[in-house]
């Protein structure tokens, strides 16, 4: 049997994960293509769960496709769209289909998405979801009833190292660790100085950290993210660097920046690996890895 994602992370290898955004609809052509393109180049692939509160093909479905094609899947699971019964049922199902990694998320707010009038469930939230997975592993559901056949997962969570203010985030990070999260994928980081500070704090806990790398494609995108995406901070030098290239070369510069950051993180052993989010540009991930020398 192939090495589990947990084993890979524990082996001390510099770990690379990336993510697949499932389609809005049933046409899986592109998704399958991205899975085939990336499954052997990264250690595991996340599948987003109605990302940004936009309804899509489910994370669970995407993870099954990855398993079927021989990849390692990380099931992203948010608490926005399901109550505790549905979450537990989906976890049982995921386990029976060979999925062993789960990223426990609260989920974005409903109004940021494409069904603004929907009810946000949030019966549980990330910390409680992590605990729920741990409880189910012990053989009962969270109602205290015995499970006929338990589960076993490698639960992870996310953290935003550049949130402002940072202190409440660090406390929440600690709560997630206490609840039983074993690995963390971070929100996009661009300022490695800030990230090093975060890692200084995080190193006291026995968890694996993968730095979030979001591909920048233009100075405009960088500025937009600074202004509109909470917890993302692109330093001015990077914006200048992107602005300095001739028209049409933004993406190439973005790839270069991402590869350079990955290289630095690996060479200086800042954390345990990286999680590359190419958001619609999955095609380019192998190139980033090649330039980074991975």
């Amino acid at each position: 049997m192939a090495e589990s994602f947990r084993d890979v992370l524990n082996s001390g290898k510099f770990v690379i994960t990336s993510e697949i955004g499932p389609p809005k609809g049933t046409n899986l052509e592109k998704t399958l293509h991205h899975i085939d393109l990336l499954k052997d180049k990264v250690d595991a692939l996340n599948v987003t769960d109605n990302q940004s509160s936009v309804m899509r093909y489910p994370s669970l479905g995407g993870c099954i496709l990855i398993k079927e094609r021989g990849g390692e899947a990380i099931l992203q699971m948010t608490c926005r769209d399901r109550n505790r019964l549905a979450l537990q049922a989906d976890i049982l199902f995921a386990y029976t289909r060979g999925i062993r990694n789960i990223l426990c998320l609260t989920g974005d707010s409903i109004p940021v998405g494409d069904h603004k009038e929907a009810k946000g469930v949030f019966d549980l939230e990330s910390v409680q979801l992590i605990r729920m997975v741990r409880t189910m592993e012990s053989g009962t559901d969270i109602g205290g009833n015995e499970l006929n056949g338990a589960i076993e997962f490698y639960p992870g969570a996310i953290v935003t190292p550049e949130a402002n203010p940072i202190e409440p985030q660090l406390h929440k990070f600690k709560k997630k660790v206490a609840a039983g999260a074993e690995f963390f994928q971070t929100q996009a980081v661009y300022d490695l100085g800030n990230f090093r500070n975060f890692m200084q704090y995080a190193r006291q806990f026995n968890v694996k950290i993968l730095a979030g790398i979001v591909l920048l494609v233009s100075a405009r995108m960088a500025k937009f993210m600074n202004d509109n995406v909470p917890g993302i901070f692109v330093p001015q030098e990077l914006i200048d660097e992107l602005a300095g290239v001739e028209k049409g070369k933004g993406l190439q510069k973005g790839v270069e920046i991402a590869a350079r950051m990955i290289r630095t993180i690996k060479d200086e052993s800042i954390c345990d690996g990286v999680h590359i989010m190419a958001i619609g540009k999955e095609e380019i991930v192998p190139e980033i890895l090649a330039i980074a020398g991975l």
Binding site: T106, S109, V112, Q128, I158, V159, A163
Partner: peptide, 20 residues
């Protein structure tokens, strides 16, 4: 809290304001 969270802020916290 727009999500009614019980265990601390989500990643949508934005300079002390809410993402929504």
């Amino acid at each position: 809290c727009t999500k009614g969270l019980l265990n601390g802020p989500c990643g949508g916290t934005n300079n002390g304001k809410c993402e929504v």
